[in-house]
Design a protein around this nucleic acid. Sequence first.
DNA 1: GTGAAAGCGCTAACAC
DNA 2: GTGTTAGCGCTTTCAC
Lengths: 337, 337
Amino acid sequence: MARIDVAHSAPTLEDVARVAGVSRATVSRVVNGGSLVAAKTTEAVRVAINELGYHPNRAARALVTRRTGVIAVIVPETDERVFTDPFFPQAYHGALQAFADSDVQVVLAMAQPGDTTDRMVRYLESGHIDGAIIVSHHGPALAVALAKSWQPVVFVGDPEAPGVCYVDLDNREAARVATRHLIARGARTIGTITGPLDMGSAKARLEGFQQAMAEAGLDGSIVAEGGYTAESGAVAGRLLAEHPDLDGLFVANDLMAVRAMSVVQQSGRRVPEDVKIVGFDDAAIAQQCTPQLTTMTNPAAEHTRLAAEMLIELLAGGIPKSPMSLKPSRLVVRGSA
Amino acid sequence: MARIDVAHSAPTLEDVARVAGVSRATVSRVVNGGSLVAAKTTEAVRVAINELGYHPNRAARALVTRRTGVIAVIVPETDERVFTDPFFPQAYHGALQAFADSDVQVVLAMAQPGDTTDRMVRYLESGHIDGAIIVSHHGPALAVALAKSWQPVVFVGDPEAPGVCYVDLDNREAARVATRHLIARGARTIGTITGPLDMGSAKARLEGFQQAMAEAGLDGSIVAEGGYTAESGAVAGRLLAEHPDLDGLFVANDLMAVRAMSVVQQSGRRVPEDVKIVGFDDAAIAQQCTPQLTTMTNPAAEHTRLAAEMLIELLAGGIPKSPMSLKPSRLVVRGSA
DNA sequence: GTGAAAGCGCTAACAC
DNA sequence: GTGTTAGCGCTTTCAC
């Protein structure tokens, strides 16, 4: 097979200028919709552009304009989790919506299994993106690293680092509401399955749970740490073994809650008669299980859209009026509690 | 609130050089692991880098090295579909695997609802990525546009344009195998639900179906076009209404097949006794329905990994030995046929 | 071992 | 209206 000249590189402004018989500046003007160019010149340039199949090199343009036209949604989780938990599609969708008519590319970057904070920071600082929305971070390391960077970044979820913009759900209050509901329905020996405790949302939900229990004079120490994954909902089994009289369960997300419910049911207990369960997120599965899951709303898309708006403001050189914003969650009562 | 200097831009090589008291070139050398720098100079530079929080501007570097260190998986589908069809996570995962230890960023770009080919091409040509793997394209337009571009691109699925690298499943043969299985199990009035017919895979699967039917002397005209989405599996209802004696159904993916099966069952027919069904993809849901779905394998991750390897070769300036590769599919017999 | 200088492809004053 | 010029931040010969 003949050697094909793969490396013949893309045509540049210079090339177009030569073909059209004008200067680089003029070509640049017509490319960028400059109105101060003669009609026939414009035409000649357009012809040359088509002939050569010219596309501007945005990296070069970015170098001078300091704008790449791409923003990233960064999810420091493995792709498996991202595609498994319905929370993420929603979050991404919110960002997409926010940039729908602004011709910026919204790309999604996830972690690779062994990834360090470093790699994400490197991408952020790389100059290939204008800014980023960080969605599910573990611990403050990333935020701290980013805080002293010049990069426009907004977190979804409390970054636990000062001076970083974010929008978050009021997880603590939501957990209190959920727990109080369990108590109001008569549960007394209530346990919780948390998310990974290196995450702010997981910590806040645990705190809210314990606060509500304390307020009611109940024991808030029946705790099992989960990982926000379906499988980890199975720790409900351990809780049940250690506390056979368990009659209530607050589970920090629906993915785990659904699994926990089936574990409870397999142990011969009825939901909600014997054990009442409240989940979190109001995911689609909450309505696909039997009984349907009582849960707390978590409008992820809305949060990311808000974050995107903050980012846009940051990008414009402004400071969002409210660099951080706590959104309320709502209880959705269904069959499980 | 005080006006914060958001725009104070990132430190540059120049800044580091000044602080370290050396030249830009030297800093560049230590940044790029140059071995030809004195130990104490290196040290001084490192100190300056840390002090300033310097990160190289990759856009600038890309301009001269012609390498950005990011490749994109481009899926010309809406995010909703991408997160809904298990095919895509698998495909993406394959790409991730292929680049796992090569420190390139693999980003995922999906279409926005009203997107044109143009926007994707623009991103591709933007100079912000080194190359791309295109996963689920509709029609040859994108491929044609890309073919005359210098961009290293590999398609997963036949691009239907000459000179473009791709890896694909042998969809036609797979569909024949599936259909023959239906016939071997005694079905005679067999219909098919296709994917969107602007996609190569959908067309090929339809052709394979019709070919197998023709070979058996059966009527291959019972066809309904679906969209590869779960909802579109419901067209099975129409097929059933028009052909009450339908006793076999080849459905072009599992998402639709599962829905089609429930439609068939709701019509009072038994699967597989009255109607035999074969799906496609061997997705997880194929084992979560009752009866379990007989289906054709479609190792998406493997295909993207292969595509990634081709891309790596392209990137290295070479030509993949086999610019296109057709992979076989395997029949997995379960309860539905 | 290190610095000076050229240049990657582009935009944006500033002249003409 | 259009061309000239000076960089954007970086790498990379080529001298020293």
